[in-house]
Amino acid sequence: MWDYSEKVREHFFNPRNAGLLDGANGIGDVGSIKCGDALRLMLKVDPDSEKIVDASFQTFGCGSAIASSSALTEIVKGMTLDEALKVSNQDIADYLDGLPPEKMHCSVMGREALQAAVANYRGEAWKDDHEEGALICKCFAIDAVLIEEVVRANSLTTVEQVAHFTKAGGGCASCHEGIEEILARVSKEACTAPTAATKPLPPATPAAAPKLTNFQRIRKIEETVEAIRPMLQRDHGDIEIVEIDGKNIYVNLKGACVGCMMEAATLNGIQTKLVEALGEFVRLLPAAMLGKAH
């Protein structure tokens, strides 16, 4: 049986705002075909203030899907549309005192329904931006589609690299066979002809890079991050450096990056750029981890 929090159970047994909503002017219908869950979110928006005056839901889904829907309606009631769009799937999970990793997609579905309902109110078309696959890493709730995308985009070849880029496999390690299968599949596709090793392997100990002074190092980090920012801003996101503590660089992701499914991949992509630029290993961490990592 699932280890549901009291709050999840309570919202499932006594869902808030369930059923049809009279006078709804923003409706979002979303679903996950694989999981079979589907959700209709109905919002009543005051056109003058753009405030959500009422919200309700109908859900075809499991206990946590119903609880996530219930929580979502409670969270967004009274918010303006812009405030509501900032609600992340993690906010929904947090509101419920957490969800099991296999069930995080229920909170993602809630967030998508919210985006779809707002788009519907504004007369825009909403398009889902991610595909969901079989759950591989249960420790960090990473699915096969995400791992495969990241493996492909970064030409990863080892389980360790996958763990660095996506966190998948970095916990209890019992999913390593599954990750190896994805790696094997992708590398098989990539290999078009039998070839000798194309690139000589880098020497075991890299040639000592000229050591940067502290000031030069910080400048280098800043330059590297500045070069990446326009890419994030194009997607309505952003990043700022908060603190540099030895090998740990703490940053804040902002805007659309917050709560994005690709957040971990984004951080890891930037981390790789920093490692290349500095010629040393550094870790890029969310500022929320300040003082926690060592």
Partner: peptide
Amino acid sequence: PTEHPEEAFAPAYA
């Protein structure tokens, strides 16, 4: 069930 359940509710599937 709604008149044509599959049409009345056809969510955008991920």
